[in-house]
Design a protein around this nucleic acid. Sequence first.
DNA 1: CGCACATTTCAACAAGCGTTGAAATTTAAA
DNA 2: TTTAAATTTCAACGCTTGTTGAAATGTGCG
Lengths: 218, 218
Amino acid sequence: MSNSRSLPKRERILDVAEELFALHGYDGVTLRQIAKGAGVDVALASYHFGKKLDLFNAVFERRAALLNSARQDALRACQLSAGSEGPSVEQIIEAFLRPLELAQETGDPGWQHYLALIAYINNSPYWGPRMMSKLFDGLVGEFIAALRKALPEARDEDIYWCYHNLSGALTLTLAQTGRIDKLSGGKCRSADFEAAYNHMIPFVAAGFRQVCGRGTSS
Amino acid sequence: MSNSRSLPKRERILDVAEELFALHGYDGVTLRQIAKGAGVDVALASYHFGKKLDLFNAVFERRAALLNSARQDALRACQLSAGSEGPSVEQIIEAFLRPLELAQETGDPGWQHYLALIAYINNSPYWGPRMMSKLFDGLVGEFIAALRKALPEARDEDIYWCYHNLSGALTLTLAQTGRIDKLSGGKCRSADFEAAYNHMIPFVAAGFRQVCGRGTSS
DNA sequence: CGCACATTTCAACAAGCGTTGAAATTTAAA
DNA sequence: TTTAAATTTCAACGCTTGTTGAAATGTGCG
């Protein structure tokens, strides 16, 4: 749809599928639309990826490792910079969110489509349970462990509900629906991830502290 | 799918469509699946509602007025019980969320499907901008006005971003993906709306206060 | 070149899609 | 009961879907 004509065709299929799946969902996109967008015959998608569902999975998995290691690095870094008492809630949330922004800074518009695809999958009662755990639960567990250490008085149950709230705010941000643009009369823009995270980090950190106890004063 | 066989067929079509659209999205459901679930011929959906898109809209609009007036009542009530300085942030958030729980208490499982459908639409970059504003923006504006009054030092931009975070946390809750069940090892349950709101209200209120100034002490 | 192999297109398939006009049935009033 | 209208089913339409086997094209090596 929006990609350089000279890339290998296999990658172009992934790029177009990524964009269309993120916008219309799995069933809202046909292999023919993807093929047309990539300037390619329909059968080529089947040749490279097999069934439609396999293509969907390939798109979802393509950038997952990169995203996970960026987040992992950010968590490790803030754990090192903090002393033995561990990083603050803000630092942990920051390590969770900022890598998503770095991904955007590469200039590859595909990253934004990919994040919107994650939002689609995570919010779907059908796809969410089938696809999210495998790729993301491991790292999420590490972040939650870090949060538990930063909030020693918290009950486990409270931490999970707070993480749920964080995940929801993030998901709606990644979905890029443009609703906040209209509601705010243009004062806020969905595409401005930096502004979104600048507001989300103190918002979520305050929520964690309220629900899970004051935590380390940092 | 799950509905009494004796209801008028037109209502049964709406009920089944509601459930299936919420689970699989607009394109993931066929009129034939809906008809089969309702124990009805395919053509009957067209007779009552016209095109597939009209049925989708009918499902979305059916419960909107009821939900809006329940929320409106809750807001009015907390505004009356508060003095001239207006209700606190917590009270406003509570008026925004609790009516969703009351809907559940009617015992009609359709309400839960309807809320999941709202989550699907609100999180969709395609449907969100096309469908949410018309039915919900008016009332949301009233809630935001109330929040602005409770947080007099806040900049408009900050209030909208905070509302965005609230909307995201709520949306993921309504979607009922069951992800928190798995993550928490069963300590938290997606279906437990009361627990979700009990955690969400103080979480979100603290976030508002952190980002938008302390507000009235209540 | 000539040969093997990967890539890409072509053509077609059976199945399922939304939609519609006409027939059958039920409902309700006279 | 007769009659008209509303509801529901039946049967079919033209079109699109995902998928596949065979043909065509491109690529790199001897």
